[in-house]
Simulated scan of single mutants.
Amino acid sequence: MTNNTTRLDHVVLWVADPVAAAGFYVQAVGLEPLRVSEFAEGKVAFPSVRVNEETILDLAPHTFADRMRMLPGSADGAGHPVNHVCLSLPADAFDILRARLQEQRVPVTSVGHDSFGARGKATRNFYFRDPDGNVIEVRHYDE
């Protein structure tokens, strides 16, 4: 890994209950929890879940939105969901995640094909919502 390449570091998702949201992303999606106990103890402002060694999802409570003052007007857009976040997985992990979500009765869309993304056309993709309504897309590319 080099430090001179642009990468996606994190995405902030607005959630009602960060601990419950972390539990969903750990149990249903299979991501690694970060700082959940520290958040529950009041030591940090929000927990996160790790997507890969370089990228995390921050699970910010809606009450945190009024703190978004990094630029003039930032608080006005805080708390609004993004359209969706897309996770790219290997084909076998794609199948495992889809099955796990269905086992846990998380509604998923039908499988789509040839949707365009960062690496061209994905072989397959599907969507689901987390308990806070954030839309997650999952895809895989032929390697």
Rank of each mutant, 00 (worst) to 15 (best):
3 N>W: 01
90 P>F: 06
17 D>K: 05
21 A>M: 11
140 H>N: 14
130 D>E: 07
137 E>T: 03
69 R>M: 06
17 D>C: 07
105 R>T: 06
65 A>C: 13
53 E>L: 02
107 P>H: 00
71 L>P: 04
84 H>L: 13
69 R>C: 13
128 F>I: 14
69 R>A: 08
95 D>I: 00
109 T>M: 04
24 F>L: 10
70 M>C: 02
52 N>I: 08
7 R>I: 15
119 R>P: 00
21 A>Y: 09
74 S>W: 15
12 V>P: 10
108 V>Q: 06
59 L>F: 02
34 L>H: 06
42 G>W: 02
79 G>F: 09
80 H>V: 08
138 V>I: 11
139 R>G: 03
47 P>W: 02
64 F>K: 07
109 T>W: 00
101 L>H: 01
56 I>Y: 04
95 D>A: 07
41 E>R: 02
80 H>T: 11
72 P>V: 04
102 Q>A: 15
41 E>S: 09
141 Y>Q: 11
38 E>G: 03
41 E>V: 08
82 V>L: 12
104 Q>S: 04
135 V>S: 09
12 V>M: 15
48 S>V: 01
38 E>N: 12
82 V>Y: 13
86 C>K: 07
128 F>Q: 13
34 L>Y: 00
64 F>R: 14
131 P>N: 11
33 P>I: 00
108 V>H: 04
118 A>R: 10
81 P>T: 03
19 V>W: 12
16 A>I: 10
22 A>K: 06
117 G>A: 08
51 V>K: 11
106 V>Y: 08
106 V>M: 05
82 V>W: 12
96 I>H: 06
84 H>G: 08
17 D>M: 01
60 A>N: 13
51 V>A: 10
123 T>G: 01
81 P>Y: 09
78 A>C: 12
137 E>A: 12
38 E>P: 03
39 F>V: 05
132 D>L: 04
114 D>L: 03
56 I>D: 07
86 C>T: 15
